[in-house]
Amino acid sequence: MQTIEGVRRSGVGIGPERTIRDAAAIMEHTGVGALAVIDGEDLVGIVTDRDLVRRGLAKDLPANARVDSVMSAPVVTIDAAADLHDAFALFRTHAVRRLAVVRGQQFVGMITVDDLLINLAADLVDLSRPVTAEILFAHRDSSVQATE
């Protein structure tokens, strides 16, 4: 399974010159907790609701401070065509909850730990189905008599 197929939620991107007030309002309105910061066509960072609190509010930054003053960079990325297991490996080796999914240098989406957990849960349900069926509907002897 390719990583891009594991991306469940739409991604939202803003320019680095936008204000942290804008970023907070966009998060509130779009329901996402992290925005890709995109300069031209290049992904230059990620700003999360946590970044706004820790690097903005807690540091007394004005609401019109630029987004790139609080964003996280460089961004941990994964290629859209990479196997989803590679995403597991990146989460294992980096202290992040989101990976930017890219094609070349272009951002195409965000994959989160939550996405992987949901995919994993769905896989477990699929795996448990035959086992559950076996427990609920125990094997019966064949109604057809064996012939000699």
Binding site: S10, G11, L35
Partner: peptide, 23 residues
């Protein structure tokens, strides 16, 4: 194909949008 520059509902905010399976 994406990305799209979009305007959100009543808020009027403009952002780039990268659709996922929820869109």
């Amino acid at each position: 194909s994406p990305p799209y520059l979009v305007r959100w509902g009543d808020s009027g905010h403009e952002t780039l949008f990268f659709p996922g399976t929820d869109a």
